[in-house]
Design a binder for these strands. Structure first.
Lengths: 117, 117
DNA sequence: AGCGATATATCGCCGTACTATACATAAGGG
DNA sequence: CCCTTATGTATAGTACGGCGATATATCGCT
């Protein structure tokens, strides 16, 4: 029984996760939700009330583009990442990497990361 | 010239950072700010308007305790972590670790982490 | 026909962090 | 001795974004 993350912890990296899964393929909202849930082994469950407004915001910001398509048998809104989105993603990956290293360094400093116990 | 992190990225891990630096010593606000700034090589600069309300909140939640002391020559408000705070910290470290691994796994999956290039 | 899963959308609440501002003391330089 | 800079704490107002609740609709299965 894996428990969920504190929601606040994910703030600021939700964009990163969504842009990531869109970086190599087109997806619709529900599928994005699933991808992220699976990739995190069920630990990151984006609620619909979070995901859809987020997608709309990213579209307003021209990071992603959408089109309705029912050629797969069901009417779904498919999203693609844009060139701006890719740039943004690259920047966010850099930021994330750098920031997580900062946190790790801090945890090391105060001995909360016993070296290879 | 190191640029700052997007503030949103740090939301949800500020508590973790503050509790961390308090885990092995007593500190006053300004010193906490400095510790975190130094440990992050100047990249994480907690504004006073963020830090002090945060400390007050953590104290309300009994994660830390405070006392005024001027025996070091200057009147400062010193903070200590409580037993609850330590428990909370341990939990947050676990959460952080697990979450950052999720993000890394996701970045790997979509090829945003070229293996040992 | 009924139901669970799929699929998208929006409203209003709430928590958190930031900006701006305020005040006070100490140290260092002119 | 004043002026500036650094130290040190504090809060009111504001902005932002995630979430729960709610709504609607279709699809596949029984």
């Amino acid at each position: 029984m894996v428990e969920n993350f504190e929601r606040e912890l994910m703030r600021g990296s939700l964009d990163l996760m969504v842009l990531s899964v869109l970086s190599d393929k087109s997806l619709y909202g529900y599928a994005i939700q699933k991808q992220i849930r699976d990739a995190s082994r069920g630990q990151v469950k984006l609620p619909a009330g979070t995901l859809y407004p987020l997608l709309h915001r990213l579209e307003d910001e021209r990071m992603i583009r959408s089109r309705w398509d029912d050629s797969t048998g069901r009417k779904r809104k498919w999203y693609d990442i844009t060139a701006s989105g890719r740039k943004q993603l690259a920047s966010q990956v850099k930021q994330w990497t750098s920031y997580s290293q900062c946190v790790e360094r801090l945890l090391n400093l105060v001995g909360l990361r016993p070296e290879t116990a």
